[in-house]
Amino acid sequence: MTQVLLPRALDELWDFLEEDPNTAVYSGGTDLLVNLRGGRINPSRLACLERIEEIRGVRDAGAAVFIGAATTHTHLLENSLVSSEFPVLTKAIRVLASPAIRNMGTIGGNIVNASPAGDTLPPLYALDAEVEIVSRKEAKRMPVSDFIVGPGRVRLGANEIVKGVWIRKAPEFNVRHFEKVGLRKSQACAVASLAAALSLSEGGKIERARLAWGSVGPTVVRSAEVEEALLGRELEIQMLAEVARLVERAVSPIDDVRASAQYRRIVAGRLLLRLAESGCKN
């Protein structure tokens, strides 16, 4: 039998982690418990984080918003601050797995799991989100793109956890777009996805662009070359088709059960074309 601990505060969690460093932490359990049952991990104890209030919920911190790691996807979907400030995140969560999984799974779990197909990750990259990492002694922040180093690999030391994620409000981005291509509409892992935040001038010229692709590389892909190529241009199909060629070169997808690398490469580029429909809308 594996012991299951239910810490109610971070101080209690630190005690547990120090007592036995082979204690695995989880919240929703939608990935960890599947891996446990499949014998892919073998922790000596489990600590469930779902009752630690300090790491739950959404907090307006003025220029930025803090989202606690143990906040469920459903909570985020129903949160008006998130949907008004970061609609690209809301759009991604709306197509994440199924309602029951969204009731259980958390944003912190999606980040630490670091799947290239994690649906919240392209929006977090496009929003330049920062991950807050805490241990008993210290708290630090790093960009999500530095925190995630490969599939399932993150910069998290012993006895550290992700406390949450910070996202700066960026009202200048007036086009916020997310699209996922999967093998079916619901409950589908992304074959390729795109999160985009663009700032259009009154004349319709792109002044700022942040784009992030999921499922087309070992981590979420951003490309400075692609983003720069969009600047000063209008959201128009011919231009986007040209830039799509740069996207095809910027991504590094693999073949797997869901799609071939070549298909993913083409889809990653074509996802850009949808932005032509965005005009000045959200």
């Binding site: 239910l6 359990g29 599947v34 469930c48 029951a100 009731n103």
Partner: peptide
């Protein structure tokens, strides 16, 4: 979804929850 139950009124999957929870 065949194992769905309500926990504090919210739909959850009982195959992905441990008794302690």
């Amino acid at each position: 979804g065949s194992c769905a139950i309500l926990v504090d009124g919210e739909g959850k999957l009982s195959c992905l929850m441990l008794a302690a929870q």
